[in-house]
Design a protein around this nucleic acid. Structure first.
Lengths: 173, 173
DNA sequence: ACACTACTGTTTGGGTCCAAACGTCCGGTT
DNA sequence: AACCGGACGTTTGGACCCAAACAGTAGTGT
């Protein structure tokens, strides 16, 4: 039984207290530590849940789904923009697109005006794949946030936007 | 320039509106969608930042650091518990421990009372590695949460604990 | 003793994932 | 026309990651 992933708030907070006790010599910002590590604990738990209960049924990896979703919402675009939007490097995207293309969900074509660029687009099967998975995916999203009120859910999204914005500015330097 | 990772709240919210417009036929819970996808956007951005600006200096991967950190705080433990705590499968941990052992940061030994179990512990070099990286890591944690007040940071950690607890309960079934 | 079941860590195969090296292409300069 | 710096996608090498198959150990029952 994974200790930090189990049980209620008390045990999770207890884990943070243990960190404080073990690392007391290092003078750490424990609020920041708790917030950041909870972002990752939550992301890992939710991602595992989604991969096992939703994506595995459709034989899609997490990244493959994100790429398809971005293409579905933002439309066809260059490989470079797509990689940035999906949060992976260009080299990674090449491999993911190889897989998706083999499944017939996406297609690539050289940009007519710029021979360096590659335009990526969803096939009809790709559109069907996203629209087929998305409702089930969203049901699970609603479940994992089911312990929060609507106000809290919006508040969480807003706080994370602030973290995201701050981090983006740091990464740009 | 990654569109969704750039700029301020307006543009991030705008991305959520685009999703609403493009997926209007699917009747989605958009609050849940925004909260969950922001968890991943934030996690990805923060992780990339940490890997590039902190971990790369010490030639540590993200997972390797998490494993070392868990061992540092919780002490020596079985491979099974360590995997659960670090959020990876047992098979993954075997490979990570191979790498860490090659670097001399951890060591494995068969449990004296149960020949199936393997006890993993930090070497002295491993302790030094964690204590050497942790302060720099925490400084960056403070930076990425720097856009939030102390109250907001604690609130974020608390909301994420609720998501984590809810998801854990889902995963146990 | 013997089977039977459950548990633990490892191996395997396929798929990400990144940084860095590479080849190609564009636009402007000489 | 040949060059050159920059941008783009791909390839490469090593590490990570999971599910599933595997081998060894433990405990139970017969």
């Amino acid at each position: 039984m994974p200790r930090a992933f189990a049980a209620g708030d008390e045990e999770l907070v207890e884990a943070e207290h243990l960190i404080r006790d073990q690392m007391s010599g290092l003078d750490l910002d424990l609020q920041a530590l708790a917030a950041v590590s909870n972002i990752f604990r939550a992301a890992t738990a939710v991602r595992n849940h989604m991969e096992r209960d939703v994506l595995a049924v459709h034989a899609l990896s997490w990244t493959a789904f994100v790429v398809l979703f971005v293409l579905r919402v933002w439309g066809e675009q260059s490989s470079r923009d797509l990689a940035a939007e999906a949060g992976v490097t260009g080299g990674t995207l090449t491999g993911v697109l190889d897989t998706l293309e083999r499944k017939g969900l996406t297609e690539r074509s050289v940009h007519p005006d710029d021979g360096r660029k590659v335009t990526v687009r969803l096939t009809d099967e790709g559109v069907d794949a996203v629209d087929g998975v998305m409702p089930a995916f969203n049901v699970e999203e609603a479940k994992v946030t089911g312990g929060l009120t609507t106000t809290e859910t919006n508040n969480l999204a807003s706080l994370l936007r602030t973290v995201l914005r701050t981090t983006s500015e740091l990464n740009q330097r």
